[in-house]
Write a protein that binds this DNA or RNA. Structure first.
Length: 806
RNA sequence: GCCGAUGUGGCGGAAUUGGCAGACGCAUCAGACUCAAAAUCUGACGUAGGCGACUAUGUACCGGUUCGAGUCCGGUCAUCGGCACCA
């Protein structure tokens, strides 16, 4: 009897071995290896540590990395820390510990836990967004953006979280609530630093086509960018010199516009009031300004007020009343719309409530609808009630109308985006200081690049002020400085950057993390960038993943990198849940990987993380399930140890199983069906155990192939088995095995014999049987059941004989 | 409301893309080994009927196409995500 599988000893041995002799090398006997950059979404080092849900993503990326390693790539597989952010700051407020101190502690703990995975991480590449040597470059990018006009100041009512006491970007507001704490977001008028991401809207949209990303994520980004085609149309205000410009995607329905609506914040809103309406108009404008976003969204009933003024339809001269309503958004399009109640649900609702005429301009099935009870929103039909446009096809007119309007001189074809500029300043302590000095004479001046990093000063209190100022504002010695341009007394910007700032570009810094001269050197970038595979949760679909693309495009534009898209391929792994809910410390359903590693070993946990379900779907954690893979590894161990010294000659059967095994594992791995890779291993292992019993053993090459295939999944046991099988050096030098389809062929096939599609017998026939032979054999097997007239005979080679009878 | 995903045994999930539904594993039950237990090994395991090799039925529901449907088409329901006055 061979020694039993001892995961503790084996894992310790190989961990030490890899430490001394790294398996991931830049070049080998065949010269320089091609790089493969496999990236994990770096974690926020929280105080609660890792659970098996975090492990899953890291295991997936490491399996993929090690597979690529076996294909002789040099693997770029770094790890780091997204360490700015609120939890550390809140902890500091509570305990009085500097966030840098608690963060350092958490990182230490995380690193220890991540080491347990035995991933290929290269800790020499580690980055930490809170390290001044790192955020020097986060600030440098901001300064560059400022110089290019992409970072600018603006005072306007932004989304404000009263609990976090800071402003938020649109992307951070989910259903009117703060993405982080769930508090209802309010409006606050504040001076903000903005990033002009809208300038990149078209490129961010168009380049989605180039990406090998899940369609879902691409679609979410496309919808977030929200490009639409339409026209701006100028409506003169009757009896004045003013005009109202509206944006519409349906200029074909211009004849059906029976009223206009302006957002209450529209510049002309108050001006349009007459003596009779002034009081009501001013009250409406005031009330709207007091309402939170949530209130505005949740008001089911439309509200509004008539201004008393009329707009002139430039096409037919019709006078239409101008209303104010908060269902029109001030910051989209022109903040004013023409309303076609016959063909827009919202306009219909508004017109119905306020008794505004409804004019149908697109016929339904060629006729006008009597007594409209809802808007007719189909975009195709024949134009009616539309003067010279009558009889035209609306879908055609929709495309032509912008140009007609442009020729006639009262409008222009235009496009619009839902994407807004990025609110980039936060009124909190634990973030990168925005490197700007406010000079009374020179205005906003960037901190000179050679003075970066502008480090965070020590403060007495981390408590956010809540007034819209960051805690930095209280530190006189830091705030008061001199203007870098004129040298006169000036004040520092006290807002900090959002947590997204560092994560928008960190993946570039890994490859050259010690560089003090440049964000990343040309040589290192050429050698290792961009990212080939990015693995992480889907929750960042429009946040981090959009911001990173924006940053990369900007850095491309200023020549800092020579690629426009950061992540070629993206994989989103599902979350791990327990008791039907997402695993998290606050829910009290956390399963710690530490105990499982101790009891079953790293290899077992790695395999179970994959076996638990399809990697892209959420999965329910079952504590008992890991027993299955642990037993499997024991059986593999016993199979190899019992047979390794038998010196068995490979039989045809062994060669066939070996080739099929390589084929199945490889194709499943390539299609990222990692759960079925594991079940495939179990299947083949069972087959080999049976075959060993029948044949008296298994040949060395088949056992060695099994060890190589296992290496990405269970690297420790694979190394040990590889060595036990008599090989020199690491299994990761073995190369990924090839398969030969010719050698996979069976001599005989089991086929089902059906009558009218129902299986009546299963027979074995030679694999090279002709259709006639197969059908004859099939008929013989079910002769007693063939009672009717045979109508048709079907043979699907190697699978089925089906006799159709009446 | 709109868009998308998912729906298969007690449970997690397979199914070569239209070809023997339930691979693989968990749990359960029975047997072997053991003084005993654990571990391990062997077997059973969708449902209903039969002592039985078997028969019927079965992939959320209703209908269709096909020799043949978990898979394709039309409709319905449920669960989970995303978006949600963007004119």
């Amino acid at each position: 009897m061979a020694a039993p599988y001892n995961h503790k000893a084996i894992e310790k041995k190989w961990r030490e071995n890899w430490e001394k002799n790294p398996v991931n090398v830049k070049s080998d006997e065949n010269g320089k290896r091609e790089k493969y950059y496999c990236l994990d979404m770096f974690p926020y080092p929280s105080g609660s540590g890792l659970h098996v849900g975090h492990w899953r993503g890291y295991v997936i990326s490491d399996v993929w990395s090690r597979y690529k390693l076996l294909q002789k790539y040099y693997i770029v597989h770094p790890m780091g820390w997204d360490a700015f952010g609120l939890p550390a700051e809140n902890y500091a407020i509570k305990m009085g510990v500097h966030p840098a101190v608690s963060t350092a502690e958490n990182i230490k703990n995380f690193k220890k836990q991540i080491d347990e995975i035995s991933a290929l991480y290269d800790w020499d590449m580690e980055v930490n967004t809170t390290d001044p040597d790192f955020y020097k470059w986060t600030q440098w990018i901001f300064v560059k953006m400022f110089k290019e006009g992409l970072a600018y100041e603006k005072e306007f009512p932004i989304n404000w979280c009263p609990s976090c006491k800071t402003g938020l970007a649109n992307e951070e507001v989910v259903n009117g609530k703060c993405e982080r704490c769930g508090t209802e977001v309010t409006k606050k008028n504040l001076r903000q630093w903005m990033l002009r991401i809208t300038k990149y809207a078209d490129r961010l949209l168009n380049d989605l086509d180039k990406l090998d990303w899940p369609e879902k994520v691409k679609k979410m980004q496309a919808e977030w960018i929200g490009k639409s085609y339409g026209a701006e149309v100028d409506f003169p205000v009757d009896g004045t010199d003013e005009k109202i410009t509206v944006y519409t995607t349906r200029p074909d329905t211009l004849y059906g516009a029976t009223f206009m609506v302006l957002a209450p914040e529209h510049a002309l809103a108050a001006k349009l009031a007459t003596d009779e309406t002034r009081e009501a108009v001013e009250k409406y404008i005031y009330d709207s300004s007091m309402k939170s976003n949530v209130d505005r969204l949740q008001d089911k009933e439309k509200t509004g007020v008539f201004t008393g003024s009329y707009a002139v339809n430039p096409l037919n001269g019709a006078k239409t009343p101008i209303w104010l309503s908060d269902y029109v958004l001030a910051d989209y399009g022109t903040g004013a719309i023409m309303c076609v109640p016959a063909h827009d649900e919202r306009d219909f609702e508004f017109a119905s409530k306020f008794n505004i005429p409804i004019v149908q301009v697109i016929a339904k099935d060629g006729v006008e609808i009597e007594n409209m009870t809802e808007a007719y929103t189909e975009a195709s039909g024949t134009m009616i009630n539309s003067g010279e446009w009558n009889g035209m096809e609306s879908s055609v007119l929709k495309k032509e109308a912008p140009h007609i309007i442009e020729e006639k001189g009262f409008g222009r074809a235009t496009v619009n985006f839902k994407l807004r500029d990025w609110v980039f300043s936060r009124q909190r302590y634990w973030g990168e200081p925005i490197p700007i000095v406010h000079c009374p004479d020179c205005g906003a001046v960037p901190v000179p690049e050679n003075e970066l990093p502008l480090t965070l000063p020590e403060v007495d209190s981390y408590e956010p002020t809540g007034t819209g100022e960051s805690p930095l504002a209280g530190i006189e010695s830091w705030v008061n400085t001199t203007c870098p341009v004129c040298g006169k007394p000036a004040k520092r910007e006290t807002n900090t950057m959002p947590q997204w700032a560092g994560s928008s570009w960190y993946f570039l810094r890994y490859v050259d993390n010690g560089n003090s001269e440049a964000l990343v050197s040309k040589e290192k970038a050429d050698e290792m960038l961009p990212v080939d595979m990015y693995i992480g949760g889907v929750e960042h679909a429009v946040l981090h993943l959009l911001y990173s693309r924006f940053y990369t495009k900007f850095l491309y534009d200023i020549g800092a990198v020579d690629f426009e898209e950061p992540f070629k391929k993206l994989f989103n792994q599902g979350m791990i849940g327990k008791n039907g809910i997402k695993m998290s410390k606050s829910k009290g359903n956390v399963v710690s990987p530490d105990d499982l590693v101790r009891d079953y070993g790293c290899d077992s946990l790695r395999m179970y993380e994959l076996f638990v379900g399809p990697p892209e779907l959420d999965a329910e954690w079952d504590d008992r399930g890991i027993d299955g893979v642990y037993r499997f590894l024991n059986r593999v161990w016993n199979l190899v140890m019992d047979n390794k010294d038998k010196d068995i000659e490979a039989t045809k059967e062994m060669i066939k199983i070996r080739n099929k095994m390589v084929y199945d594992i490889t194709t499943r791995l390539e299609s990222f069906s990692l759960n079925t890779v594991i079940s495939g291993f179990m299947e083949y292992n069972n087959k080999l155990i049976d075959l060993a019993k029948k044949s008296g053993g298994i040949d060395n090459e088949t056992l060695s192939t099994l060890a190589v295939l296992l290496a990405p999944f269970a690297p420790h046991i694979a190394e040990e088995l590889w060595q036990q099988l008599g090989h020199e050096g690491t299994v990761f030098n073995a190369g990924w095995p090839a398969y030969d389809k010719e050698k996979m062929k069976d001599d005989e096939k089991e086929i089902a014999v059906q009558i009218n599609g129902k299986t009546r017998a299963v027979i074995t026939i030679p694999a090279d049987s002709s259709k006639e032979e197969a059908i004859a054999a099939g008929k013989e097997a079910i002769a007693d059941k063939l009672t009717g007239t045979i109508v048709k005979e079907i043979y699907v080679p190697g699978r089925i004989v089906n006799i159709v009878q009446k």
